[in-house]
């Protein structure tokens, strides 16, 4: 599989502030890369460089096989960009916004009109097509902005925090839209500070912090770095907690920890659901009643905490350009 996006050694400074300190990336065609990091990590700077809005101080990049620095204009023909804020013209209608973008992609007037209608239908904006965009809800604006990025059917798409500021329902709608695009074969680079979003949408995740890549891999690989699955058991009778630890010792892949005041224990396991079934059989055989039992996988929050020593939401740095 060829890489639709490559970047190597990207460096960008603003005075003394180092926004990017040497970032390498590659995104195979037809896959989704989630660029995950807190505010100020440099996610937006990466997107701006790859989408030709910003020149790096050092490093090189290609998008859809075209050198970003040598031929930015050719890159622009092959990409779609949707930013953090919906960059739609508030005074134009949804239709006019998309038609304008189509004409600036030089689709020609009839094709630009046709494409605008197609996208409005695909993004469930038909009813609002002839209303000025300032009357749209936040979710509708984002959909219109994303539609704008898709006018020319670009093979490579950049979405910079596509759901920041959306309510949960609009966020899930947006995820569905993005998942459908990816099914159609678009290569996507997505930035997000929501771990859940990267988990749902991305094939590969690159975690960046302070302008450096601190981890990369699939969501499962990253979670495995933190440790495997954990079995959480809450027993009905607190006096039998110690018994439960003994009974489950053969199932455990490591040291169990207990929280007596919650009558709960956590033990690392391997084998997922079969370990869960095995554990339940053993507890039943020993006559230990349980209130609750569950298999918990580490979340990307755990990953972030492990990698950076702080939760993702705690970063208070200001995003640099």
């Amino acid at each position: 599989m060829t890489d639709a996006i490559t970047a190597s050694g990207l460096v960008k400074r603003y005075g003394d502030v180092v926004a990017l300190a040497g970032v390498d990336l590659s995104v195979p065609s037809g896959t989704v890369l989630g660029l995950l990091g807190p505010n100020g990590a440099g996610k937006t700077t990466v997107v701006r460089i790859l989408s030709t809005l910003l020149r790096p101080d050092r490093g090189s990049a290609t998008v859809a096989g075209v050198d970003v620095l040598a031929d930015p204009r050719e890159v622009r023909r092959r990409i779609g960009l949707s930013g953090q804020y919906a960059a739609v013209d508030e005074y134009l209608t949804g239709f006019e916004n998309l038609q304008m973008i189509g004409r600036l992609y030089h689709l020609g007037r009839p094709r630009a009109r046709e494409r605008a209608r197609e996208l409005l239908a695909a993004f469930r904006l038909e009813d609002a097509a002839d209303r000025p965009a300032r009357t749209y809800s936040g979710g509708m604006r984002r959909r219109l902005d994303l539609a704008g990025a898709l006018v020319a059917n670009p093979p490579v798409l950049f979405l910079d925090e596509p759901t920041t500021g959306l309510d949960p329902r609009s966020r899930i709608e947006m995820w569905e839209v993005i998942q459908n695009l990816v099914k159609a074969g678009t290569t996507l680079l997505l930035t997000t500070q929501y771990l859940e979003e990267a988990d749902v949408l991305a094939d590969t995740i690159v975690v960046i912090d302070h302008g450096r890549v601190i981890a990369r891999g699939t969501a499962d690989e990253l979670k495995a770095q933190v440790g495997g699955e954990r079995l959480e058991v809450t027993v009905s009778d607190g006096d039998r907690l110690a018994d439960a630890v003994d009974v489950l010792a053969p199932v455990a892949a490591g040291e169990a920890s207990t929280e007596p005041h919650r009558r709960a224990m956590t033990l690392p396991v391997v084998g997922g659901a079969s370990a869960l079934v095995d554990a339940l059989r053993r507890l039943d055989a020993a006559g230990i009643e349980v209130d609750d039992v569950g298999l918990r996988r580490p979340t990307l929050d755990d990953v972030f905490l492990t990698l950076t020593g702080r939760p993702a939401e705690d970063a208070d740095d200001q995003e640099v350009a």
Binding site: S51, T52, L53, R73, E74, R76, R77, I79, L81, G83, Q84, Y85, A86, A87, D89, E90, I101, L104, Y105, H106, G148
Partner: peptide
């Protein structure tokens, strides 16, 4: 401010 210029700059116009 509203990002419209970013949008224009990302187009092959």
């Amino acid at each position: 401010k509203k990002g419209i210029i970013d949008r224009f700059r990302s187009l092959p116009m």
